[in-house]
Every structure is written in structure tokens, then in C-alpha cells.
Nucleic acid binder design. Structure first.
Lengths: 221, 221
DNA sequence: GGCTTAATGTACTGGATAGTTAGTTGTAGC
DNA sequence: GCTACAACTAACTATCCAGTACATTAAGCC
């Protein structure tokens, strides 16, 4: 990436565009995810970095530009995971469970991503819709899922009328809800979603749920 | 409510505290639900009513007080619905489906409520947690659900290890997701969740999903 | 070692916006 | 028809905050 001299490494470089950008993105992710777009403060983001507000405008142009960069980087994470998931060596049922658990694990360990998606929906996806990465987001999720469904149907294991996006929705809704609505759920029902035992239980549960749905009334139109 | 004269009704009363309050709450619900708490503008809310900003402070004290009043009124709607739902005359499976469909219909027809819940979660439920109505929110949902589960288990129809809050979560997550994440879902996958055919399909689906879960491996510990 | 450009810092501005001050008017009760 | 209070209005202020003008410094290049 950076062309650093091989033998005389300065331990703290004073100018490093790459690192400054990344530091700003990290701070901005935290700020926007925890306060929303309108609630997020550019001054606050700058204060969390080792640089100044001027740099944010230098690299990202505007508050909106920064927010969009944050959003795009967050989406890139789950997209990469889905692309890297190799389930061809697993039977359809196990493959489906692996996909559900991948989603479960990602969403649980990336609350900032989930919160950013919530925030983006509050804004009617107006930022995401303008993003150049938008067209690359659908395929990874849908392709893996369609492949598993096709194999399952061919083997006579899964129902014929299951739709890939519906299955994606079942998995996403469950995994997103646990993280996205964690706070109101805990306030109302007094149950912490992130309790380790409960997490393990829910992780099994989403796999069960999807497989029960897919194997119900097999062969029916 | 208001002591209006019986025979000489003035068509447009110039002073009506009740109506002014309600008008402010309506406008504020729309504003906060569509722009978030920090993004919502008190001046904008005032402009949408037939009164002035001063009245908002007169009745609700602060922006936060207004927001909390909006949130409480929104929760009151679903709580009332759940309380009024009478499923004792239905067999457990039909009762469960009726509850799922009630939730589905409410969430689909009250997007502002769903958005407010999302917004409240962005804010770590800090407003809801201070609300005096908080203790009244859990019981209606849980009681109806527990009743149905008990009857289903007693009849040997439902699995023994099903937990009321888990079932609530399955139903809520699905119904909330469709509305809450509608915009990013449409942007990414090009599918409108509110299409009439798809809605009917999903409405059946959430009932199926819950019943398949509850009737799977019946009798197993 | 000077030239060029990318990277960085300081200090400011102007518009937006939550909240207030100081008043006015309608209406119920007598 | 007067009084007291609730309901209401208009105009203001103090602060916050996104974005900028301008100066400066490090580093690659020859």
C-alpha cells in the first residue's frame, strides 16, 4: 500500500493520508451509528481523531459525503463475507444453516452496520440510492441463496414455491431485529438479546425456523 | 370532553385546547417519524399546525417532551389493539394466526409507529425508559401470547419448549422488518414490500412460519 | 537545495434553530 | 359586563454547527 523505506522505519509518520482517512471513517462510523445522521456532529468526529475538521472536508467534501463513505464501507463488509462463503461442499440443509448463521454472527458483531441501515431507512435510503456501490449489493446475497435453494429443490428436500428474497427476508428480519430493536425490547420486556445463552439459542433457532419453513409441505405447489 | 353548547354550535371554535394539542401531536408524529428526533424541526411542526411554536412549548415544555408524547401515543395504539383482541373462542392454531395477522396489519398500516421505534432504538431507548407508560407495555402482548401457547401445549399441538417472548420476536421481527427496512430493501433488491399481492403472500407466510415452528418436533423437550 | 504539491492546522462566519419574553384575546363563572 | 385565567401570538435571542479562508508544513522529485 504505502511505500515505506525497508530498513529505516519511522515509528510515527506525521503524514499518512491512508491512515488519516481510515481514522476519520472509524470515528464517523461510531458517531453516526450512535447519534444518527442529523444528530452526528462533524466537530465531534474530528475531536475523536488525531486530525482536524478541515481534513474531513478535504477528504470527504461534506458531512453527507462522509456519511455516504461510512455507509458504503459498512455494506462492503457483509458483501465480502457473503462472497467468501463457500457452501457448495455442504448439503442444502447444512448450507442454508451456514448462511443463516453467517448473517446472524455478522449482524450481532456489527451493531454499527445495523444501526446505519436503520438510519438510512429513516432517510428513505436517499443516500444509498445515489451510491455507485448500490448495484453490487444484491447479487452476493441472492446468488448464494438461490444456489442452495436450487440444490435443495432438485434433491426433493425443499418446497417448490420458496422464493430466494422471501428466505433472505426471514433470515435478515430475525437477525436485524435482535440488534436493531435491542434497546426498546430490553426496556419493555427486560430481556437482553446479547446474553450469551440466549444468543446461542437464537442462533440455532433461526436455522431451525428457515429449515422448517423450507421443508414444510414439500412438493406442494 | 368539551362543554359545547347544544343548539348553537359555532362551526369553527377559535379556542380549543384539546384540538390544538392533538393537531400538534399529529404534525409532530409526522415530522419526527420522517426526519428523526435530531432532524425534526420544531418550527416545521409549528408550521404544519394552525398554531404557533409557542403553543408547543406551552403544552409540551420542550422538544423532548413533545417527542415523548408522540412516542407514548404511538405505543398506546398497538397496546390497545392487543388488549382488545379476543382469541379465546378460536382454537390455538387459529388464535396464533390471528395474533400474527393483527401485528402484521398494524405494523403495515402504521409506518410512523415503526419508524418511531427505530428512532428510539437509535437513541438507546433513552426516552422510552423514562416514560411512565413503560410498565404497561409488556403485559398485553405477552399475556395474549402466553394464553395461546398454554392452550396449544395442553392440546398437544405445540412444542413444549416454545417461549412466549421468542415467538413474539419471530412475529415482530418479520412484521417490523417489512416496514422499517422497506427503503434499503427496495433500493438494493428492487422489490416493493407494500405491493398488494406480496403483502397478502407475506401475511399468510408469517402465520405459516410461526405455526411450523410451534408444531415442529411436537413433544420434544 | 529549491520547487511543487499533497496534507494539515487555526480561526472564523453565517445561517439555522431551540427556547423565551412580553404581550393579547377569548371564554367561563359570577 | 366584569374578572380571572386559560389559550394564544409575534418577535426576539443566544447558541450551535456545517462549512470556509487562509496560512503552513512535510515529502517526493530533479
Amino acid at each position: 500500500m504505502t511505500a515505506a523505506p525497508a530498513d529505516d522505519v519511522t515509528p510515527e509518520r506525521q503524514r499518512d493520508a491512508e491512515r488519516t482517512r481510515a481514522e476519520i471513517l472509524d470515528a464517523a462510523t461510531e458517531e453516526f451509528a450512535s447519534r444518527g445522521y442529523a444528530g452526528g456532529r462533524v466537530d465531534e468526529i474530528a475531536a475523536k481523531t488525531r486530525t482536524t475538521k478541515r481534513m474531513i472536508y478535504y477528504y470527504f467534501g461534506s458531512k453527507q459525503g462522509l456519511y455516504l463513505a461510512v455507509l458504503e464501507r459498512a455494506y462492503a463488509g457483509i458483501r465480502r463475507l457473503e462472497q467468501e462463503l463457500d457452501v457448495d461442499h455442504l448439503d442444502p440443509a447444512r448450507a442454508m444453516r451456514a448462511l443463516a448463521e453467517l448473517t446472524f454472527d455478522h449482524h450481532q458483531s456489527h451493531p454499527a452496520f445495523i444501526r446505519l441501515v436503520s438510519i438510512e431507512n429513516i432517510h428513505h435510503a436517499e443516500h444509498l440510492r445515489t451510491s455507485p456501490i448500490l448495484p453490487t449489493l444484491a447479487a452476493p446475497a441472492v446468488d448464494v441463496l438461490s444456489g442452495i435453494l436450487d440444490r435443495g429443490r432438485a434433491a426433493g428436500l425443499f418446497r417448490d414455491d420458496a422464493d430466494a428474497l422471501d428466505v433472505h427476508m426471514i433470515i435478515s428480519s430475525f437477525c436485524v431485529f435482535r440488534t436493531a430493536n435491542r434497546y426498546t425490547f430490553e426496556a419493555i420486556f427486560g430481556r437482553d438479546m446479547l446474553d450469551a445463552d440466549r444468543s446461542a439459542h437464537h442462533r440455532r433457532m433461526i436455522g431451525d425456523l428457515v429449515l422448517e419453513y423450507l421443508t414444510a409441505h414439500v412438493g406442494r405447489a
